Simulated scan of single mutants.
Amino acid sequence: MTLRRWRLPLVAVLPCLTLAGIGWWCWPGQPAPVPLHLVAGTVHAALLTPDEASRLAGTTLVSGPRSNQPPAAMTASASKCAVAVGPATQSVYGHEWTAFLSATYQDAGGTGAYTVNQVIGVFPDHAKAGAAFRTLTTGLTRCPSSTRTDQAGRTSKWTYTTDTATSTVVGWTAMQDAGEGWACYHQARLKGESILQVTVCEAGSGQPAATRIAGALTGKVSG
């Protein structure tokens, strides 16, 4: 599948598409505005605005879907790959979180050629956040590749490569097979009682932008 053919159906099915674990929700019809700011107990967290993310990504981004709860786990070709195909879903965040916020931005042209997703999940304590973070890192090691089924029933094959792995940071790439370079660059960080994730999807090298945005997002979280 060429990049051109990938972008065209992306625009057509954007409302219900999930790209390698990004929580896409119906783009044109959010039932109610979800703020970019949350407070859970003593934890303060705020997502980057589209303007802030645009400066770090080096391209103009506009606001898209937001959610205040993780989507359901996605369908993978093997159950061990549930985390790899849906790192921002219930496969990682489960049901013990106390606050959750996700926002997706896309290129200003609306082509879906560039997307940025930010996620913050807050847990009751550091132990529960750490357990969820280990679920993420362990799940990534178990799945080098998988065929993913999206919310509309379409399938695509992805290959996963981890490039950074510490007790508090993990970075990895999800590359779509036969996608002519289309990939999603992920970085997740554990900070206090929170797990943060940033994903940049593009047909190019989105890793530097993902790292910059994740660093800025981490700086906005305190606990």
Rank of each mutant, 00 (worst) to 15 (best):
K128T: 15
L19K: 05
T168F: 03
S145V: 07
Q106I: 08
C184L: 11
G192A: 05
A46S: 15
K128F: 02
S67I: 08
T89V: 01
L136T: 01
S91H: 04
V62H: 00
G215F: 01
V62W: 01
M175F: 10
V13G: 08
G192V: 02
P144C: 04
T138A: 11
S102V: 10
V13P: 02
T166M: 04
T111Y: 13
A152P: 02
A214T: 09
R142E: 13
P31V: 09
E193H: 15
S91Q: 07
P124D: 01
R189V: 11
A88Q: 13
L48D: 07
A12D: 09
A174V: 06
A73Q: 11
I120V: 15
A46P: 07
N117I: 06
R142T: 13
R189S: 13
P208G: 08
A165W: 04
A174Q: 10
A45F: 00
L17D: 09
S145G: 12
V198C: 10
L190Q: 05
A99G: 02
L190N: 02
L196P: 06
V119P: 06
A45C: 01
V198F: 06
A174F: 01
E180G: 07
H126Q: 15
E193A: 11
K220A: 04
A103P: 06
G206C: 07
T164H: 12
V221R: 00
V116C: 09
A209H: 08
W24N: 14
E193M: 10
E96C: 03
Q176Y: 01
K157R: 15
E180S: 13
Q30Y: 06
T199W: 09
D107C: 00
